[in-house]
Design a protein around this nucleic acid. Structure first.
Lengths: 273, 273
DNA sequence: CCACTTGTGAAAATCCTGTGTCCGTGACCG
DNA sequence: CGGTCACGGACACAGGATTTTCACAAGTGG
C-alpha cells in the first residue's frame, strides 16, 4: 500500500525572516530539494504575496514586531488557502494559540531543524491539496477528456486549446464530480485568493470555456449554471433538442422537466497511464 | 482584522494515550468546549476508528511502542482525511519528520498545554474541511431528498427546481428535524440578518416552497404552520385523506415522524450525528 | 365578534448572469 | 526598439430570474 502521501511536487515558498544563519541553512536544503523559494526581510504587502502565487509561507512573527497579528490576519483573510507555518523564537502558549487561531497552520519554535520545518510545510500542504482530484488522473465525461498531465482537454482526440486558467477552471469543476461549486470557492481554488466583491472573472472564464467546448464538442453541454449559486460540471447530451412540442406543453407548470433524463452524470475517472 | 476561520462546530475526537494526568486535564477542557471525545489506552483496530466517525485523532505514539509507525501508516492509509495530531514525550527530529511524512498533521511535545493541543487540532481540521467536500450529507424525508451538494431538492429523482433562498429555507427547516422554528430564527439564519418588523418574507417563501413541493410530491405535506409561532418540517403522508374527521385531526396534530431512519438528532449531517 | 396571524396574487424593485468591448502586460518577432 | 498577439482582467449593458413589498382575503383563538 501507499505508506506516505507525497506532496505532489516541489513547492514555491516564501520565507519572511531575518535570521541569516537559519535562512542560509534552510535555503541550502530547499535548493537541494528543488523548491523555489524567496526570502523576504519584512512583511510585504498582501498584494505582493498574492502575485507570488505561493505554495506555502514560512514566517517569523518576530520580524514583524507588534503588527504581527494584524499582518497574519490580513494574509489569512486574503489567502485562506495558503499554508502558513510560523517559525519563530521563544513564545508563550497564549501566543501560539493565538497564531494558530488566526489561521496559521503550524507553529514551530527556533532553533529547529530545517528538515522538520520542511516536513511540517509538507504536512500542511498535503492537507490543502487533498480534495482536489489526484493530479495525473484523466477525467472523462461525454466527448471530453481532461488531462492534468498535459494541462489540456481533448474532445474526440483533438485539443480544445485551453489556456492555463481555462484548464484549471474546467479541471476543478470536473473534479468536483457533479457538485455545484459556488463562485467564491471556484475563485479561491483557481485564482488562489479571495474574490473581490463584484468580480466577474469566474463568469467570464466560464463563457470562454463554453465557447471553446461548444466548438469542440457541439452535441454536449458540460457546464451548468445554478442561478444564485455557481456552476456545476456534468456531461449532458444535447444533440436532439425537441423544442417544438413537449417543451411548450409543460412550460407552464413543470419547468423542472427540462433536465428530466437521468442527469446525475458524474464524470468517470480513469487511471492515467 | 477579526475573522479567524472558526472550526464549524464541536469536533468528535479520539485520544490514544495512557498518561492519566494529561488526559484528565485535556478531557476537562474538551467537556467545557462541548467536544465529544473518547480516550483509548491502546491502538484500536482501524475498523473501530472508522466506525467512530472521528473529526480528529490525538495520539501518543509512545503508547504503541515499536509498532507506532506501522499503526500510523495503517491509519493514514485507511483514513486519509482524518486529521492526526501526535502528542508525545521527548522525540528526535528524525522521529518527528518520520511521523509527519507518514501522514501525521502535527507533532506536539509533552508536556504541553491542552489549549495549544486544541488550537492545533482546530488548525488542522480547518484545513481538512477546506479541501474536503464541505457539503453535508443529503437529508431524506417522505419522497423528498435535500442535497446540499447540489443546492437543490429532489422528489422521486426529479429536481424540484428551487431557487437558492428556497433551498436554504427548506434545508434549514429539514435540518431542524421536526422542531418548530420561529420566524425570527428562520430569517436570521437564512437571510443572515435580523428581521425587520412586519417583514413577511418567510411566509412568502414558505408559500413558494409549498407550491413547488406540492407540485413535485402531491401526496405529501412537508411544511406545517404553528399558529403564532412559526413553521415545522415533517414529511406527512396525505395521499388518501378520509374526509370524515379522524384522519384530518390526526394529520393536524400528530408528531408525524415519517422521517428517515431513526435518529433522534439531526437527520444526517456528515461526520456529526 | 374582535384583534391578530397567516395565505395569496401580483406588481415593483433588485439581483444575477451572458455577452461584447476595451485595456494593460508580457512573450515573441522582425 | 516598435509592433503584434494571446491572455487575463475590468466594465457596462441587457434580458431574465429572483426577492421584496403590498393590499387583501381567509383563518385562528379568546
Amino acid at each position: 500500500m501507499t505508506d506516505v502521501t507525497p506532496v505532489a511536487g516541489p513547492l514555491r515558498l516564501a520565507i519572511i525572516d531575518t535570521d541569516s544563519g537559519f535562512v542560509q541553512v534552510l535555503t541550502n536544503r530547499l535548493d537541494r530539494l528543488g523548491w523555489e523559494h524567496r526570502v523576504l526581510s519584512s512583511g510585504v504587502g498582501v498584494d505582493r504575496l498574492v502575485a507570488m502565487r505561493l505554495g506555502a509561507l514560512v514566517i517569523d512573527v518576530a520580524v514583524l514586531g507588534p503588527q504581527a497579528w494584524d499582518y497574519l490576519a490580513r494574509v489569512t483573510a486574503a489567502l485562506p488557502a495558503l499554508p502558513i507555518v510560523v517559525c519563530t523564537g521563544q513564545s508563550t502558549v497564549a501566543q501560539r494559540v493565538r497564531g494558530l487561531r488566526l489561521g496559521a497552520d503550524d507553529w514551530l519554535t527556533k532553533p529547529c531543524h530545517p528538515e522538520e520545518l520542511i516536513a511540517r510545510v509538507e504536512a500542511v500542504s498535503r492537507r490543502r491539496r487533498q480534495g482536489d482530484a489526484e493530479a495525473g488522473e484523466a477525467i472523462t465525461a461525454g466527448e471530453l477528456e481532461i488531462r492534468p498531465d498535459q494541462f489540456q482537454a481533448f474532445a474526440n482526440g483533438r485539443s480544445v486549446d485551453l489556456t492555463r486558467r481555462e484548464f484549471e477552471l474546467i479541471a476543478l469543476l470536473a473534479s468536483a464530480a457533479g457538485r455545484v461549486l459556488e463562485r467564491e470557492e471556484i475563485y479561491q481554488r483557481v485564482w488562489g485568493y479571495t474574490m473581490a466583491h463584484g468580480d466577474r472573472s469566474v463568469d467570464v472564464f466560464v463563457r470562454k470555456l463554453r465557447a471553446k467546448l461548444t466548438n469542440a464538442s457541439p452535441d454536449w453541454e458540460y457546464i451548468h449554471t445554478h442561478f444564485g449559486v455557481g456552476y456545476r460540471f456534468a456531461a449532458v447530451w444535447a444533440g436532439e433538442v425537441a423544442d417544438s412540442s413537449d417543451a411548450a406543453v409543460v412550460s407552464a407548470h413543470a419547468p423542472a422537466v427540462t433536465q428530466a433524463p437521468a442527469e446525475p452524470l458524474v464524470p468517470s475517472v480513469s487511471p492515467a497511464r
